[in-house]
């Protein structure tokens, strides 16, 4: 297969677009690297060299001694596994020669992030945190308190995320709201151990995906990306803790450390 200069530029752009989408929607670095390289070689490049950092990717394609390098900044668009699945599927199809460069480009541009109905998510997150309260040994009244506290926090979180507020501000205010609602349970003595609701209702704000991604990046050799993700997740947890402490100081209800 012979590539002209234009074709090679086009191929590089397609590959970097795929990598950018993966990075923005929360794929781990190894997946970004592998998928971009496979897509590039499937479309005809001899090799693809890729450097993934925490907020940008740099890619170079090689063909018969010609190098083309391009950089893309990757702003966080929120975790979306459906986009990661779609890009992966395109990569597999290009590898099996079911699609040429033009088709891959068109499909990549058409991709739209799928979002679940927000009220359905609020309901499920309410039940999730309520289930956590069961694991901590809470009874039915605690279950109910946790449900409402975490559902309220989730509504606020979605609302702030929709308006592109800073994630740290977002998480701190959501933690504040959740702790305040659940401290009502302690004030009115609702259930056997109402403090459990205060511990369970903020668990929707645990940055689980960044933490897992951070450790698996570090395990697979992307140390600097892993450290960046780890610091981000730690800062999120700290802002959640600040929100909790602010609410506990204001209401005077102590639910965490006695």
């Amino acid at each position: 297969m012979e590539l002209s200069k234009e074709q090679q530029t086009e191929l590089t752009r397609i590959a970097v677009k795929a990598g950018q989408i993966l990075h923005q929607h929360g794929a781990e670095s190894r997946l970004v690297e592998q998928t971009t390289q496979r897509l590039g070689t499937a479309l005809g490049a001899q090799s693809i060299e890729l450097s993934v950092s925490s907020d940008s990717i740099v890619i170079t394609s090689l063909f018969n001694g010609n190098c083309i390098t391009t950089t893309r900044r990757c702003y966080d668009r929120g975790i979306n596994m459906q986009m990661v699945c779609e890009v992966q599927r395109l990569c597999v199809m290009a590898e099996k020669q079911l699609m040429d460069a033009g088709q891959v480009k068109e499909r990549l541009q058409r991709l739209k992030p799928m979002k679940y109905n927000r009220w359905l998510v609020v309901l499920m997150i309410g039940f999730s945190c309520a289930s956590f309260s069961h694991f901590f040994g809470g009874d039915l009244p605690v279950y109910i308190t946790t449900f409402f506290a975490s559902a309220g926090a989730m509504i606020l979180r979605q609302e702030l995320a929709h308006r592109h507020h800073n994630p740290f501000v977002n998480f701190a205010s959501a933690a504040f709201v959740a702790t305040s609602i659940s401290s009502l349970g302690v004030i009115y003595d609702f259930g056997e151990e109402p403090q459990i609701a205060m511990a369970a209702c903020v668990l929707l704000l645990v940055p689980g995906f960044p933490l897992i991604n951070a450790v698996s990046d570090m395990l697979k050799g992307h140390i600097s990306t892993g450290i960046a993700r780890w610091v981000f997740a730690t800062l999120l947890s700290i802002s959640v803790a600040i929100g909790i402490v602010a609410s506990m100081t204001l209401t005077g209800v102590v639910g965490w450390i006695n």
């Binding site: 979002k115 679940y116 499920m124 997150i125 999730s128 289930s131």
Partner: peptide
């Protein structure tokens, strides 16, 4: 029973495709 609920709840926050 109590473990599948948070798994699905958080999967929906991560926008995992419906079939999965």
């Amino acid at each position: 029973w109590f473990a599948w609920i948070p798994a699905v709840g958080f999967a929906m926050v991560f926008n995992v495709p419906k079939k999965m």
